[in-house]
Design a protein around this nucleic acid. Structure first.
Lengths: 341, 341
DNA sequence: CTGTTAGCGCTTTCAC
DNA sequence: GTGAAAGCGCTAACAG
């Protein structure tokens, strides 16, 4: 393994000063064409690769933006990361991703790591860490939070209107004639899970539908918990004709529980999700759910970070999920709507 | 925003030399307890966070391992990344992930970026970039490739035995009495897609089953392509009772095409995938597929990189996917003609 | 336009 | 055990 070639080597070899090489590298100043050509030739020949660490140290910027995600393998956050990657593309910044696993301790560690790496900015996706920790970070670098409200940093939060999302679902079901609607909640240590559940309760009341506590189950956002919760709901032997899930993954699990019992979707039971994961277009039947343009959300977050880095103060508008009606919802059985079919 | 506090500040404040602080930080040498306590107190009080860039520059190691992935949002690679993250956990190394999007140009750019960031090692997940480029990288830092054979770096490749995997599926179908089996191939610019397709052809011949070119469709590993390919297969009006897909995502798409035509799985048609994505346990019906312990594969890759970094030469054993029989496969219907419709 | 000269923040001999 | 000093590779005034 040959020793690494440095800018100094290039300078010597080309018979110029290191500054000149640096200037050529960064386009910081004009350099006579012949010198430039000479240097570029040497760079090629020696296969010189500038050392980002050294650059970072010298000019005080690492050109990386830290991303605190929760679970790198989750379809939801994965899509978000892809969006962030895209949003940063073309800029000289690159994402540095660390997972917090919805665990305050790990999230703190992740933030520490990123600060040690001297990220120039931070994007925080969800999480359960206290607002204070985030404020602390935000005091040092521009920070954008997605899907989470941070006290004292409200203008830096891209929020998702979870309540309004669920309301749309309930309204849709009501229009189809459903009255007895069951609900599977997400992990309520997470803000969005609480908002969705509350949104459900409010919407049911608004529409004059009966809100029965027995029909409210609690999951943890995973497929397995959705299956489990649905099974428990069905075991109750209480009548209901629609099942609203706080996310697509749980809806997928619930779907399996229904399948096991031979309950047809949507003829016997309507089923809805939240998130519109890419794969939800392909469930059998395709899932009615709330679309979140996760990729674009990520991209937007990245662009906003770039703006902040450039000294601007971009507006962060709340995001309203959009109801996508597919085939997992249909008229309530035994309802006028169904009869009319 | 207060200026960043440096090791120098800490040293001054504690009345010791910078070297002492450094030694305490890294445990490089013994320091009298009282000095140590004094310094640690100052670190706390000043909230000192060491600068990794500077450390990297000083000791020639960045403590980061580059990961060239293809699509950060893909469920397959996402899971792999999670595994890598886990494998690196506990070590002082951290992953730096960049996506190549199955595009040689972008992959090269990604590698360049990672080299500029002076990663200490590299993990390459799939990709279509020429072996030469990888050899070039491997000449500078330890490299481990997953799911791809690299000429000249065979001992550094964690391979997946795709042929053997598909063979297991075909054998399973044959045992269930299927004879007319259709196949949807993946994107054949990727090595694994070719291997899986060839494995299918070989297995069919081995088992004396008819191999009809018309029943071999080509997809690109996406759900949409699976749906499309399945639709075309069905439109052919040729009899077949089982459909083998080169990955789970396409199987999911194919599932929808079958659902659209009212073809029941597995009563009318058996369906199989490859990868065993997490969500494949929850399709309706749950998908028979080939399990790859993607997470563990990633973790193993990371551990191997760590070993290489430590100067060892860990053995890289090829990985054999394991057949998981769920409910999407069943006995061949008695009248094959009935299945195609 | 270009070279010289200081650092950026940390580690690491090398003496004491 | 601990400090002084010399770099790691690059950038950015500052003079020419």
């Amino acid at each position: 393994m040959s020793a690494t070639v440095t800018l100094m080597h290039v300078a010597r070899e080309a018979g110029v000063s290191p500054s000149t090489v640096s200037r050529i590298l960064n386009g910081t100043a004009n350099v006579t064409p012949d010198k430039r050509e000479r240097v570029e030739a040497v760079i090629q020949r020696l296969n010189f690769v500038p050392n980002v660490q050294a650059q970072a140290l010298a000019n005080g910027r690492s050109f990386s933006v830290g991303v605190l995600t929760q679970n790198i393998s989750s379809p939801f956050y994965g899509e978000m990361l892809a969006g962030i990657e895209r949003g940063l593309e073309g800029s000289s910044y690159h994402p540095l991703v660390v997972s917090g696993h919805w665990n305050a301790g790990q999230e703190q560690q992740a933030l520490d790591l990123l600060m040690r790496r001297r990220v120039d900015a931070m994007i925080v996706l969800g999480g359960v860490i206290e607002d204070e920790a985030l404020q602390h970070v935000a005091a040092r670098v521009p920070l954008v939070a997605v899907g989470r409200q941070v006290v004292g940093l409200t203008e830096r939060c891209v929020l998702i209107d979870n309540r309004e999302g669920i309301r749309q679902v309930v309204r849709h079901l009501a229009e189809l004639g459903h009255r007895e609607v069951a609900y599977i909640s997400g992990l309520e240590t997470q803000q969005d899970a609480v908002e969705r559940r509350e949104g459900f309760e409010v919407a049911m009341r608004e529409l004059g539908l009966p809100l029965r506590p027995e029909l409210m189950q609690r999951g943890d956002y995973t497929e397995a918990s959705g299956e489990q919760a649905a099974a428990e709901l069905l075991a109750l032997d209480l009548p209901f004709t629609a099942l609203v899930c706080a996310n697509d993954q749980m809806a997928l699990g619930a779907r399996l529980a229904l399948y096991r019992r031979g309950i047809r979707v949507p003829q016997d039971m309507s089923l809805t999700g939240f998130d519109d994961l890419f794969s939800s277009r392909y469930t059998t039947p395709p899932l009615t759910t709330l679309h979140q343009a996760v990729n674009e959300l990520g991209q937007q977050a990245a662009e906003n970070v770039l703006r902040l880095l450039a000294g601007e103060s971009p507006p962060m508008t709340p995001y309203i999920p959009q109801l996508i009606i597919r085939e997992s919802t249909g008229p309530a059985p035994h309802s006028p709507a169904a009869a009319g079919q």
